[in-house]
């Protein structure tokens, strides 16, 4: 399991992460990011993609 942090000061709720890794990131009805704080290693590719497509580079992963 790896751990995700999102810098909420940077996050601008673009929603691109929810497109790249919908099992981990989602946007609620108000358009605010919600996410799972840990994820299975099998999802690493999706999460790396979410990090790539974040327009403000707000997503970080720790082992």
């Amino acid at each position: 399991m790896a751990q995700i942090t999102v810098d909420r000061k940077l996050c601008d709720n673009h929603g691109q992460c929810a497109i790249a890794a919908p099992k981990v990131f989602s946007m609620n009805d108000e358009g605010i990011l919600e996410f799972e704080e840990t994820f299975d290693d099998a999802l690493l590719d999706e999460v790396e993609e979410a990090i790539d497509v974040c327009p403000v580079q707000a997503i970080f992963v720790k082992d």
Partner: peptide, 11 residues
């Protein structure tokens, strides 16, 4: 001017 959830819906 819509929440990102609407953008995901339209996408």
């Amino acid at each position: 001017g819509l929440p990102a959830s609407r953008h995901l819906h339209y996408r």
